[in-house]
Amino acid sequence: MISVKELKIHYGEHVAVDSLSFSVAKGSVFGLIGPNGAGKTTTIKAIATLLEPTYGEIFIDHISVLHQPEEARKKLGYMPDFPPVYDDLEVTEFCDLFAHAYGLSGPERIQKVEECLVLTNLQDKAKAKCKTLSRGMKQRALLAKTLVHEPSVLLLDEPAANLDPKARIDLRNLLLQLASAGKTILVSSHVLSELEDLCDAIGIMRAGKMVVSGGLDEITSITSAERLIQVEVVSACDQLEACLAKFPSISKISKLDGTGKRFSLSHSGDTKDASSILTSLIQSGIPVASFHRKQSKVEDLFLDVEAGRMKKNFNP
């Protein structure tokens, strides 16, 4: 549905996006991850027809964004990272403006606006002025406006950035619902754990390049071998280190404080191995208070990329 080929974008002398290629299948959710300045927003803006690439091609459902931008725009819904709204319009009027601009009229327009407000849980704020909304609500109003013309492709730049935890869960469920209804979603985010729950595929960008991209399962299998496990015991215990030494997958044990109750283990095994470590600790009578892997696999991968540990492109 979305196909980006050899995309290059220059801002004067600065290369914001360099030879970027990826594709997103119809009905799937693709997460674009990267540190600030990686080129995520620039890429999304180029797909949204708002930035002309220096080189490369972008297709939306086989329509060239460069050569037929008007056609492509009909299929696109775009939501930027900072939610600008018309402050002096009511939420309904804000959505109605775009429903009108996209050619909807009469009762169909009114109905569509109401549907979108219900979908984004804004029906109670329908008559509120946009300027009175919180940032999270503005984000939802923007999403309602984005959905009003039923776009088949949604481009969401940091959509959860200003939302409270409940609104994030609601947004995730809504996006999953939209994806299951056949919409193709490209989403960028810094909340990596949420992307894991939401996306079918992800791409990690660094300095304008796609360092890793592919299906979630595929790319998490390539994360660096070692990962941290944090262990906390109820009281200091001498047996702990002896018990852990039995596992070759643990390369290093570090004390996190002077009490001898909190440890960090450098672990290179899989989840099954981690489980057997925990079982062994409990069976040895060590009073384990908590045992958890410190980061998600995507977070590990992201940190690897950000630290420059993954320099070569990897596209499984």
Binding site: A48, P80, P84, Y102, K145
Partner: peptide, 16 residues
């Protein structure tokens, strides 16, 4: 103002 905030981009994307 609308260009700077990005509101103009919403309008630019409409098929008008």
């Amino acid at each position: 103002e609308e260009k700077e905030s990005g509101l103009l981009d919403y309008q630019r994307m409409t098929p008008m």
